[in-house]
Design a protein around this nucleic acid. Sequence first.
DNA 1: TTTGTAAATGATAATCATTATCAATAAGTA
DNA 2: TACTTATTGATAATGATTATCATTTACAAA
Lengths: 140, 140
Amino acid sequence: MSANAWLAQLHENGYRITKARGAVVETVEKSTHALTPVEVYDIARKKYRALGLVTVYRTLEKLEELHLIQRVHQPMGCQAFISAGHGHQHLLLCKNCGQVAFFEGDDVDALTKVVAKKTGYLITEHWFQLFGLCAKCRAK
Amino acid sequence: MSANAWLAQLHENGYRITKARGAVVETVEKSTHALTPVEVYDIARKKYRALGLVTVYRTLEKLEELHLIQRVHQPMGCQAFISAGHGHQHLLLCKNCGQVAFFEGDDVDALTKVVAKKTGYLITEHWFQLFGLCAKCRAK
DNA sequence: TTTGTAAATGATAATCATTATCAATAAGTA
DNA sequence: TACTTATTGATAATGATTATCATTTACAAA
């Protein structure tokens, strides 16, 4: 999915297309790394100088609401985001370079069901992420 | 493991046993809910009035270092902790009451190996949590 | 095209969590 | 009991996030 498709999604949901949003969307959509709001701000401002940090927060909020991005939790903190353009997939983050890889999680659903039965919980959400070194960083 | 055993662990690792640490350890060790630093502070101060918030942060740091507690990530933010007294297990959090259940994750290791082979990553850490409603909250 | 209206914006201030600093205190060993 | 040094709590500093508000701008309707 392209940045334009994201903007179309925003429009379809009653949100307006602005230069600020264009810059944020373009930045997040094409990033292969999880970005914090401030990082998005720094990069997006190269495309649109007048952009305000607050607008970045607000735009990320909407993109998350539309499931166009997903939150990335890191061992030491939160508030980083990555495009969710690959459907429902899980993340694998390189601790050295920050590169993000996606992988399928068919087995996760099976495991979830087993746990639900054992614990009596109704499971509505899951959260699975791996951390390590990507092939490149391993070689160094 | 009891609060005393945790304090013994601290001592073994060259840290001193203080009233402040006693209060923090007692609070976190027996909690069935993930607690934020401020929550720990509020509860522990009932046991030891003079406790400072900064000491809570520092004590949690050490407990994490000794793997006595683990970080709990929530869909909307981080910095909450729960006892890691159950060995390496995964968490299941009730979104309504905050109750935490543990479950085994044998299947996770198998999945991890498959992903490592497919992606070429060296996987050093994983992070798996479920969210939902516990049996009690479901019934309401 | 032009115009009207409400959504969206950026600047600023306010709030909240976390970290750094430092003199005073207390743990634990000799 | 005394001494050394880790630990403490108070305070200040920092950094991230949220609230406020007057101004601007998207865009639908005329």
